[in-house]
Design a protein around this nucleic acid. Sequence first.
DNA 1: ACGAAAACAATAATCGTTTTCAATTAAATG
DNA 2: CATTTAATTGAAAACGATTATTGTTTTCGT
Lengths: 138, 138
Amino acid sequence: MEKVPMRITYQRKIILEELKNLGNHPTVDEVYMVVKKRLPKISMSTVYRSLEVLSKNGFIKKIEPVDTQKRFDDNTSTHYHFYCKNCEKMKDAPLKPEMVKKLEKEIGAIEKIMEGNGYKVDGYTLEFFGTCKSCEQK
Amino acid sequence: MEKVPMRITYQRKIILEELKNLGNHPTVDEVYMVVKKRLPKISMSTVYRSLEVLSKNGFIKKIEPVDTQKRFDDNTSTHYHFYCKNCEKMKDAPLKPEMVKKLEKEIGAIEKIMEGNGYKVDGYTLEFFGTCKSCEQK
DNA sequence: ACGAAAACAATAATCGTTTTCAATTAAATG
DNA sequence: CATTTAATTGAAAACGATTATTGTTTTCGT
Ligand SMILES: [Mn+2]
Ligand SMILES: [Mn+2]
Ligand SMILES: [Zn+2]
Ligand SMILES: [Zn+2]
């Protein structure tokens, strides 16, 4: 149960450096392409692993979908979801309609602000994750 | 440019039926498995296409990630993102820190409510999508 | 009932990501 | 230092989810 400190290897140092001067939210492939210029022999898996380690140690932040699979909902009205990492099920967020309405309005206002800033906002997704009620009760 | 009405095929009818009585947000595979019991010869691609068509015609709602690729951010503080469907770049949502703070607080309250409902909330993702400023200016 | 267009089943291809494993490198020990 | 131990790497294969392709079948307006 000991926490082994992250090793600062040459490739990790360079990956971090290049991520920083790439700036805006690159994909793994984008990082790979620039790093390859300095480390021609580096492999894709090293880039994947390093970014993972760097984010796990708080140097950077990973942006990833809560759940990668497509899902379908017979309820077409606006509501939010909760993904349980334990049972891997998607549940409706346990919120009263009034709460949903309020949040919806709030975020709608935010969208307006972004539109005022020159962005065309088509929509958004808000998803919570953690452990669902039934899983928690065990 | 004509809008062709969706054909109501046997398999679409059954897929919709089964999606409805599956209830909670099934994955494509989950739909496939139950539908296969009634239509042993149905193929996976038909399930994919049908769910797509059904959602496009408003019968059901698709739940999918704004962007499927992993991305990494050198900014580790809390902030929101905007995905441009045109240039396929992820940008920081153009919001003033005060606005972010406010939303953060608002959603934090929502999390509390869900915790009160027996859920363990580890976090959430909020992502906007549409067309970014620079793409819009063309 | 006929025929054009749409949808189908089966299969292969693609995409992003993870795993495997032998070789290399870094850190810990003496 | 030299030696031991353990983590990391590169290359390749495997993976799961989704999309594309190709003939065949079905739907539906006429
Ligand atoms: Mn739902
Ligand atoms: Mn960011
Ligand atoms: Zn659960
Ligand atoms: Zn753009």
